[in-house]
C-alpha cells in the first residue's frame, strides 16, 4: 500500500508533447511509472514516446482507462486543464505548472467542489511512491522504498528530506509535494491524514514554510488523531517580514504565519520539531527507534 499513486495507477500526461511534458514523461517512463498515454489538443492519433496521444482527457479515460493525470500545461491554460481532467473523471490530478494566476485557481477550486477527485498542486514537484510510480519531476534515484511518508510545500527541500531519510537507512512510502501557491488542491492536513491512515507508513515528515495557516491546521489535526510520530520543519525562520504595502493580508492571514509561531504550535501539538534542516532524517530515525 501507499497513497495517491502506485504501480497500478493508469497515468496520462497533459501537455505530453511539449518540451517539459516530453522530458519528464521520458524520465517517468524510465523509472517504470505506468504512463498509458498523453493529451495534447490537436495531436490526437499520434504516438509520442511510444504512447498514444489523445485530443481530450475524456478520450484517454474512455480508451485506455486513465485514472491519474500529471499536468505540464503552461500557466495560461493550466487551470483549464485541471477542470478538463476533473470533468473527464480523473481521480488524482497532479499539477506541476508554476505561475497560474490566483483568480484562475479561485475558479478551479470552486469547480472541483462537487467532483470526485483530488488535486495535488499546482506549483509542486509531484507525488512519488518509490519503486512503484514517479509522478512528478523529482530525481528518482535518491528515493528508496520504505515506510516514511513525506509532505512538503517545496521542491528541492523535499529532495533534501528524502535524501536524509535514505541516508539514515530508511525509505519512503509516499512523498507528496503539495505545492507552494496560495491556493493548492491538497493541504498539508489532507496529505498528513492520507499518510496517517496508510497502514504501510510508520512515520511522517511534515515540511512547511512561512505564510498561511496550513501547518497550524495540520498540527491541530495531528494532536487529535496521531497514531504515528510526526517530525516537522518550517523553512524561513530568518526570512524578513513580507514587504507588502497594506495591512489587509495581515488581518486575514492572522498571526500564525511566521516560522516561530508555526513551530510553537506544532511542538505544542506533539510534533517533533527540528530547528535545523540538516536534522530531519536523523530525528526521524531517533524517534522511531525509541
Amino acid at each position: 500500500m501507499s497513497v495517491l499513486v502506485n504501480k497500478d495507477s493508469k497515468i496520462i500526461v497533459q501537455g505530453f508533447t511539449g518540451k517539459e511534458g516530453s522530458f519528464h514523461a521520458g524520465q517517468m517512463i524510465e523509472y517504470g511509472t505506468n504512463i498509458v498515454g498523453g493529451v495534447t489538443p490537436g495531436k490526437g492519433g499520434q504516438t509520442h514516446l511510444e504512447k498514444p496521444v489523445f485530443n481530450t482527457v475524456k478520450e484517454a479515460v474512455d480508451k485506455v482507462g486513465a485514472d491519474t493525470s500529471i499536468i505540464f500545461v503552461p500557466p495560461k491554460f493550466a487551470g483549464d486543464a485541471v477542470m478538463e481532467a476533473a470533468e473527464a473523471g480523473i481521480k488524482v490530478i497532479i499539477c506541476i505548472t508554476e505561475g497560474i494566476p490566483v483568480q484562475d485557481m479561485v475558479k478551479v477550486k470552486a469547480y472541483l467542489n462537487d467532483k470526485d477527485c483530488r488535486l495535488v498542486g499546482p506549483n509542486c514537484p509531484g507525488v512519488m511512491t518509490p519503486g512503484e510510480a514517479k509522478v512528478g519531476i523529482m530525481p528518482g534515484f535518491i528515493h528508496n522504498p520504505g515506510r516514511i511518508g513525506i509532505v512538503s510545500r517545496s521542491g528541492t527541500l523535499t529532495y533534501e528530506a528524502v535524501d536524509q531519510v535514505t541516508k539514515a537507512g530508511m525509505g519512503q512510502s509516499t512523498c507528496i509535494g503539495i505545492g507552494g501557491d496560495p491556493i493548492v488542491g491538497t493541504t498539508t492536513k489532507d496529505a498528513v491524514q492520507l499518510l496517517m491512515e496508510d497502514p504501510e507508513t510508520d512515520g511522517i515528515i511534515m515540511i512547511g514554510e512561512i505564510g498561511g495557516s496550513m501547518e497550524a491546521d495540520a498540527a491541530r489535526w495531528i494532536k487529535e488523531h496521531a497514531t504515528k510520530p510526526v517530525v516537522g520543519f518550517i523553512a524561513g525562520q530568518t526570512a524578513p517580514k513580507g514587504r507588502t504595502m497594506g495591512h489587509a493580508g495581515a488581518i486575514i492571514g492572522g498571526d500564525e504565519d511566521t516560522a516561530e509561531a508555526k513551530m510553537k504550535i506544532m511542538a505544542d501539538c506533539g510534533i517533533h520539531v527540528v530547528k535545523s534542516p540538516a536534522h530531519i532524517g536523523k530525528t526521524m530515525a531517533e524517534v522511531l527507534n525509541k
Partner: peptide
C-alpha cells in the same frame, strides 16, 4: 534575489531550500 543585512551570502536552487539554507547559516 532579496537583499538582507547579514554576513553570509548564499546561492541555492529552489525557494524552500533557499530559506532552509538561510536558517542553517543562522544556526
Amino acid at each position: 534575489y532579496v537583499n538582507l543585512d547579514g554576513n553570509v551570502g548564499c546561492m541555492v536552487n529552489g525557494a524552500g531550500l533557499a530559506m532552509a539554507t538561510m536558517d542553517i547559516i543562522k544556526l
